[in-house]
Structures are given as C-alpha cells and as structure tokens.
Simulated assay, not measured.
Amino acid sequence: MDHSSAQTVILATGLQSSGSTILSWCFLQRPDMNGTLDGDTDLVPLPPAGVETPFLWYKTTISCFTLGEQVAVLEDAGCTVRPLLMVRDVRAVWMSLMKKPYGRNGVTAEDPPLRLRFRRFLHSWQDAAEKNIPVFRFEDLLARPQDSLKTLCGQLELPWQQAMIDWPKPAEQIADARHGNARFMESSRQGLLSALDPNLGKQIRG
C-alpha cells in the first residue's frame, strides 16, 4: 500500500446488496475524500495509491472476510482506520441476492456459500456492537437521507459536506470506480435525493 501514514482510512463494509454502493458514492463526493467505490470481495482491502486527500475511503463487502479481518489487514499496514458497518434487513438482502449473478452459493474460499457470508456478517455486527463501531441502516438512508448521513459523519468524526447530497463529482474523478454498474452510474448524475426516489428530489431538503 502506497499512502501517507497521516492519512486516515474510512473503511465501509456490509453484505452484498445492502445498499453500500450508494453510501460509498455519497462519501466519495466529499472534497476531502477519495478512494475505492467497490473493492473486490475476494481480496483484502487494497486502497488505491496516489490519493492525496486527507481521508482515504475504501468500501468493500463481507463475503470472504469479516469486518474485523479487514480492519486488521489495514492496521497491520500501518493505517489509522475508522470502520463502519452498513446493514439492511437481511430478508431483503437475501431476496435481492437470489436475483443477482453474484448471489450464487459458491463452494470455494473466493466464492463462499451465502450462508457463510451471512454468518460472517453476523460476527461482524456483533463485533461492531462490542467495539462501538458505527452501524448504518440502509432503511434510515431511504427514510431520512440527509439527517442519517449527518449523524454518520458525526460518528466518524467528519464534518458535514453538502456534496454528499448534491453529487458534483463525476466518476472520472474517483480514484477507483471500476466496479460501478452502468445503471448506478447513470443515476449518479442526479444527486442522492433523485437517485433514491425521483419525487424526493423535488422536496425541500431537511
């Protein structure tokens, strides 16, 4: 890893189909942050080199590694890590994964069975509760987009940035946006409120 020792890594992780990509995009819009939109699930966290913003963002999912294992890898490399866990109703996650090509029941370490991924998530959730790691609910993002993000920023000791809602930064300015899907990239031009619900974007921000 080639990054400044003074740089803090904000590590976000959660189950696949937990809404973590849209949260990742919100944080990567900040002028004080850059990094990885979606990390590879079968690799340890590998933040991109050459990021010069005060904060380095890295988002991945819980599949092959638990939250604790991901944090440990970064700390072993000398990083200061502020982790967060993204959660969503596991019933909704399960139903979503059943329709996704990556929601298959694998049999290898690189592509583990879904039940094993969910067990790793449960362990990560218990670990987060014990260590007072912020847990962010996708349902709160849907119900209270700005307020929930402001609360999360406070938990991560970050100042609020309106860019997290307005989305001024194009994908070309993200250090590592390789895994952003075409449908999401199209919606990312609208801003958070419109991306969540076209009608929300017409309402007064709260």
Rank of each mutant, 00 (worst) to 15 (best):
A182I: 08
A109D: 15
E75Q: 15
P83M: 10
M164F: 08
D32N: 10
L56D: 04
L158V: 09
S5W: 00
L74W: 07
T80R: 15
I204E: 15
R115C: 13
P83Y: 09
N199V: 05
V81L: 07
L114N: 12
V87C: 12
N105C: 06
F184W: 02
K169I: 13
S17Q: 12
D32S: 13
T21R: 02
T21Q: 03
F184N: 01
D166Y: 07
S20K: 12
G14K: 03
P101H: 09
G78E: 05
W160F: 12
T61H: 13
F184M: 11
L152F: 04
N132I: 00
A129Y: 03
L84V: 07
M164E: 08
L28A: 09
H179P: 00
Q70T: 07
A171F: 04
R88D: 09
M98E: 15
G14A: 02
R137H: 14
A195W: 08
N199R: 13
A6R: 11
S96K: 08
G191T: 06
R104Y: 12
A163K: 06
V135S: 04
A49N: 11
M86P: 02
P83R: 11
Q173A: 14
P48D: 06
L141V: 06
A195R: 04
G39Y: 05
M33R: 02
L15W: 01
T151D: 09
L114C: 07
T21L: 08
Q203T: 15
L84S: 06
Q155W: 10
K131P: 02
N132F: 03
I62F: 08
P54C: 02
T13Q: 02
P54L: 01
D42N: 15
D32P: 03
A72C: 11
P159G: 08
A128L: 05
Y102M: 08
M33D: 05
K59L: 01
P198T: 09
W25R: 10
S4W: 00
S187V: 05
G201F: 05
E157W: 07
K100V: 03
L85P: 04
V135N: 05
S5R: 10
Q190W: 08
I174M: 11
T8H: 00
A12N: 11
W57V: 03
C64A: 14
T151M: 02
D76T: 13
V90W: 12
T61P: 00
W25A: 03
E157L: 11
R115V: 14
Q7M: 04
T61D: 08
P47F: 01
L200W: 10
E157Y: 08
E172D: 14
K150H: 07
Q126T: 12
W57P: 04
M98P: 01
Q146Y: 02
Q190E: 11
S194H: 14
G19T: 03
P198E: 06
T108S: 15
P47N: 03
G106Q: 02
L85C: 09
F138W: 13
L74H: 07
A92Q: 15
P145N: 05
R178A: 13
P170H: 08
M1S: 11
G78Q: 07
M33T: 09
D111W: 10
R117Y: 12
T61C: 13
S96R: 10
D147A: 15
S5H: 07
A171G: 06
L142M: 14
M164G: 05
